[in-house]
Design a protein around this nucleic acid. Structure first.
Lengths: 154, 154
DNA sequence: TTTAATATATTTACAATTAAAGTACAGAAT
DNA sequence: ATTCTGTACTTTAATTGTAAATATATTAAA
């Protein structure tokens, strides 16, 4: 086999390996987080939505705003808020100033839930990344951000 | 604020940042791949399944085997193979030796499709990771594998 | 002011995934 | 030969996501 061919294959190999290892890592991570959230009848999307509403405060957020912050389509926000409302973690309130707008607000019960879950969640993330030392985490973050910048352009 | 508290927060910060950047990177990557596959009426799961069957050869694979290789539950393999069969890319064949077993086999049309898609797919992966040089890709892969090893233990 | 364009949310249809329950078949033990 | 156990696949219900069509409310333009 000619060496140029080898180089080309090597280049492709690293590209494929990069994507494969990224995928494997996220699969493991998502699995871990899903198992963690399941203990509280939560999921990653539910948790993310609750965190947004938690930091948004009393007035909550319009569904459209919540959707944009979560990078999720409007159609799905409807369903997600449906489920959170069914669980008693969120209420829908019509905005009096613009009756097209429906705001999602967090309930006291959800605030209590978040206060219970958040410390455990932080612990889990620390444990999940504990196989890397501080320098390695910083390097990983730097490389991921650089990779993202390349991906953004495509 | 006492310095120990600061350190603890910094530690948590790096853990959270690591997870966030991993998530963002995969989001961008999945989006890119989804758009690419959509040109061929494919998706990442469909493509993965076809690749497994492509390398499995004439006899194809039992659905259970295909499911294990794709790390997907058996229930979903049924649906995924349904869709691939509907697209004319796969056929189901009952194994004569064990009639519990159904093998999925790739069709000539799918082989043709793969031959068309594969070079473009490789190009895309190379472009997707082109913002990192060879050394950076190797470092990223090494750190991801190390992170996976830690995640496996949880 | 009526009309046109825009924004918000929902509905519907589909893809992908999991979990749990059910069905069919194979192999082993009695 | 029958029964038990395990394996393979399917079915159903639920969650999460996208896209397209629709209803309603607002805003801008004619």
């Amino acid at each position: 086999m000619p060496p140029e061919k080898n180089q080309t294959q090597g280049e492709g190999y690293l590209a494929v390996r990069t994507v494969i290892e990224l995928t494997r890592t996220m699969d493991l991570l998502e699995d871990l987080l899903a198992r963690h959230f399941a203990h509280f009848n939560l999921s990653q999307p539910k948790f993310n939505a609750l965190m947004e509403l938690y930091y948004a405060g009393e007035e909550g957020l319009p569904l459209s705003e919540l959707g944009q912050r979560m990078l999720v389509s409007r159609a799905n926000i409807t369903g997600l808020v449906d489920r959170l409302e069914r669980d008693g973690l969120v209420v829908r309130v019509v905005d009096p100033k613009d009756r097209r707008v429906i705001r999602a607000q967090i309930t006291p019960r959800a605030v209590q839930l978040i206060h219970g879950v958040l410390p455990l969640h932080m612990d889990l993330l620390k444990r999940a990344t504990s196989s890397l030392n501080i320098e390695e985490k910083e390097t990983l973050i730097r490389l991921l951000v650089k990779l993202q910048q390349g991906l953004d352009k495509l």
